[in-house]
Design a protein around this nucleic acid. Sequence first.
DNA 1: CGCATTTCCTGGAGGC
DNA 2: TGCCTCCAGGAAATGC
Length: 275
Amino acid sequence: MPELPEAETIARALDRLVCASVISTARVMRRDVVHGDPRPLGRVVSGRRIARVYRRAKRVIVALDPPVEIVFHLGMSGRLTVEPAAAPAAKHTHVRLLDDGRREIRFCDPRRFGGVWVHAGGARHVGRRLGPLGAEPLELTKKGFAKILNRNRQIKALLLDQTAIAGLGNIYCDESLFRARVHPLTLAKDLRPVQTAALLRSIKTVLRAAIKHRGSTINDYRQVHGAAGTFQHSHRVYGRESAPCVRCGLKIIKLTTAGRSTFVCPACQPRVTAT
DNA sequence: CGCATTTCCTGGAGGC
DNA sequence: TGCCTCCAGGAAATGC
């Protein structure tokens, strides 16, 4: 379940590892995970230098020079790793980019909720055919956040909506809502200004802490060298059904909203209704 | 249109 | 051990 912190961790590590190397060939083992430019991937990327690797929302973007962008969406089980080209590839490895150092950037995604989008022509095309993306949560202002929240929709569903705010997934929504003491089913427009401010602060605090811990590993997520993240040890509500709330000791409950498991402390996160 | 719900996919867990 | 069902979730598709 790579969300913003996991994508950021991978992008930073990839940038350090492969920046300035030149892609010699690409191999696509499953064609249906590659989208965008219809030409064979090898033909599009061969001979181009990796200019930088960065993140937008939950996506990891490899920018080449001359300009081509390879956008990786990790979905839920996607991994991006750097391995010696001679090392055996894991099952479900769909795309392999060989560089001039005989290393491979490998995209592996058993559940195939992720994918690769190839855009010749550079950054201005990123996002096209990927759907419109909302604001980066770490760059949001209080005012901008309040504007996004002025809707008649459950706050958690809104936070998960990538066209509203781009980068939060199930884990960091629950963690942020808990820290801000906001019930996930509260209608966004019913949040009081102090709650809106607290929620934005919580979102930023949680995301920054998770990046510092190299992401949360529940099942599939791994860093580029294969190691797990460590932020899962700092989760306060996510995955803690029936365990005592770290703040009040009452049992954490699990409910379902927006088709997602949602963990909440019924005492610390009271529901708010319009006055 | 806006919002809620279903669907896609595989591996791991748990029941028996 | 083996077979079955269920569950995880990002985001597109579908329903209302």
